[in-house]
Amino acid sequence: MPSVAVEPAAAFTVPVPRGRGRQDWRSALFVAPYLLVFVAMLVVPLAMGMWLSTTKGDLFGTERWVGLANFVRLFGDAIFLKAVANTFYFVLLTVPFLTLAGLGLALVLNRQERWAAVLRTIFFASTVLSVTVVTLVWRLVFLPDGGLLGVTAEALGKTPIAFLNDERLAMPAIAVTTIWWCIGLPMVLFLAALQQVPRDLYEAAALDNASRWTTLTRITLPAIKRTFFLVIIIEVILQFQLFGQPQLMTLGGPNNSTRPIVLFIYEAGWRQWELGYAAAAAQVLFAMILIAAMVQYRLSSGKEAA
């Protein structure tokens, strides 16, 4: 067999050159601009906020390190505890309804016809409005003297109710406002999930003579289970951060009944100028949201694995 130049060339011992390195610090220039802003606007304030939460001082005075005193004070502060309770109450009022109504709307509106598209447009429209427009609109609905509900009540011969001035009704009124504002997001998330369900599953079910109810409970709902939990967590995180609606509609009243944690932070920081105290409350909220975010991360990374 004719020999070819394949056999390891034994005599060929050149100093081994290093391969052209791809690790290059100049490549980091692409990420540097963002990282600069990231550090200045997120990392530093976060660390500073944590440090602030262990200090006491005012806007002009020097901060003094007080350890965990702010946190101890928070958990003895009836208004803060009320704010925490209000926040949970609000989440309970809005999140289950937003999730179930969003799912319901998606199930009914997941079709090609024109009327369904029009209705989808209507339900998502309010999402693009800013909180100040939304609250302005709804104040003119809830206003006892000349508001839409007041006028309606008078037309029916009843006494108008001052929803936003009633301790029991103010929070539900804010919840209604929020649901009106936010219903679009859960709906489109569910719609996206429904469109991911493989069509041949429905064809197989039809061949198996499944009823519409069976198709819904055995195929559709199990297929979007993950989205269901995802929506719940996204909404919990969003609604936990309730701020603008009560700040603009009730200022937290009457009798603190609509003051959520974020409004508490805002008022501690920018009304009383107790920055350390406000920062401590912010850390508590951060911890709560972090727990929810961790659950969400688990769910969404699990989705990729599936």
Binding site: V14, V16, P17, G19, R20, G21
Partner: peptide, 22 residues
């Protein structure tokens, strides 16, 4: 082609040594 680095040895195309070239 130069799309993978080499850990050792040499590559020549024609008379030119290319393993250090992009």
């Amino acid at each position: 082609a130069g799309l993978e680095t080499i850990d050792g040895g040499t590559i020549r195309i024609g008379e030119r040594r290319v393993d250090t070239l992009p």
